[in-house]
Design a protein around this nucleic acid. Structure first.
Lengths: 115, 115
DNA sequence: AAATTATATCCGTGTCTGCGGATAAATCAA
DNA sequence: TTGATTTATCCGCAGACACGGATATAATTT
């Protein structure tokens, strides 16, 4: 029960919600991607990502200096269901659309070193 | 976005999660019902119910002295989806089952005055 | 080793929220 | 009106968490 509550708590912050939706549409992102899109300081982004990891929402993959974050597929069946609901009901929000286009613009100009 | 985050925040507390699941299985409950099942003081139960109401999760119906709470059907399409997910993934939790049987036992012995 | 880049963690501060006893408000009965 | 019942709100206290600059860690490059 506590575990389920924690899953919801992880989505109870607007920034974390934006991060989860960005990961859902893009697949894999590193901290610097999210800093650019969310326009937030690095410590803030890292802190929210750590929270999402503690709550079993994301997995990490290190590639050199970069830490790549993905939605943790494979664990937490309830998370998958919640993602479907989000997909249905959150993508029409203007903030989600602008985040996605900001991400696309950033990735286009990004040097290919950090893929 | 903030609104969606608030919807999740309402489910981020174990007690509120239990209340929502009880309302989902029983339909309509008053504060005294929940006090008996959750074994919590009245102020605690009322506070959580007020939080759920602020977050568009429940509606109220006054009947004399009693205030009846129901899951607010009709508003918040995303809430309905979340309830379906909960139904699929939370009912196998032991705490949910014991809450439901405790509620059934309480309602059976309850004087019919407060229906 | 030294410098650089990306990320994680630390720190003090402020806000939010939970708790539950105490009190207030609302409703009904006598 | 008085009293009883149910519910809502108030109150001080405690813990969790958000913030973001500063610092530490990790990996790569030179």
């Amino acid at each position: 029960m506590k575990h389920h509550a924690q899953i919801f708590k992880a989505l109870s912050d607007p920034i974390r919600l934006r991060i989860v939706l960005l990961l859902q549409s893009e697949g894999e992102l590193c901290v610097c991607d999210l800093m650019a899109v969310l326009k937030l300081p690095q410590s803030t982004v890292s802190r929210h990502l750590a929270y999402l990891k503690r709550s079993c929402w994301v997995d990490t993959r290190r590639e050199g200096v970069w830490m790549h974050y993905t939605l943790s597929r494979g664990s937490c069946a309830i998370c998958k269901g919640l993602l479907q609901i989000l997909e249905q009901h959150a993508y029409d929000l203007p903030e989600v659309a602008s985040d996605r286009s900001a991400l696309a613009a950033f990735l286009k100009e990004k040097p290919s070193g950090c893929s």
